[in-house]
């Protein structure tokens, strides 16, 4: 029971095909977010943008294939705990992710 089929080994996914590729997904709590924009500055994939004016200024994940690599750096820098990654990126086929589970903080055993 191999985790890889022969076809999968041969097929290299192209970057923007959302049939089998999923990008990282963020959960952004817009009640906590004050739109300070630090997360969008440090995001390595530049996947977060700040939209809106005044009080409605909030962080949003780009809709059109955001280059989120689910690193959670945004969650680390956010002072209000307003956002975190809930879905990890997976490009499928040759680059599909193996042996990963849900997100969890460091665990004390």
């Amino acid at each position: 029971m191999s985790q890889f089929s022969f076809l999968e080994r041969l097929s290299v996914p192209t970057y923007d095909n959302d049939e089998y590729a999923t990008t990282g997904r963020l959960f952004i709590d817009h009640e906590k977010c004050n739109g300070c924009g630090v997360c969008s500055q440090i995001c390595p994939g530049k996947a977060i943008s700040i939209r809106g004016e005044g009080k409605a200024k909030k962080a949003y994940l780009d809709e059109d294939f955001p280059q989120c690599m689910s690193c959670n750096d945004c969650a680390a820098i956010c002072e209000r705990d307003a956002l975190k990654v809930v879905v990890a990126y997976d490009f499928g086929l040759y680059y599909k992710k193996l042996n990963r589970g849900a997100f969890a903080p460091p665990r004390r055993y």
């Binding site: 689910s70 680390a76 990963r100 589970g101 969890a104 665990r107």
Partner: peptide, 30 residues
């Protein structure tokens, strides 16, 4: 700039664990 350090959530990795003649798969969430 700011305070970018801190503990975050990260995906749990599966671990294959061989001990005392049995194999355990340590799965998501432990």
């Amino acid at each position: 700039v700011g305070n970018p350090q801190g503990m975050i959530e990260r995906e749990v990795m599966d671990v294959d664990w061989y001990e005392d003649g049995a194999m355990r798969k340590v799965r998501q969430g432990g």
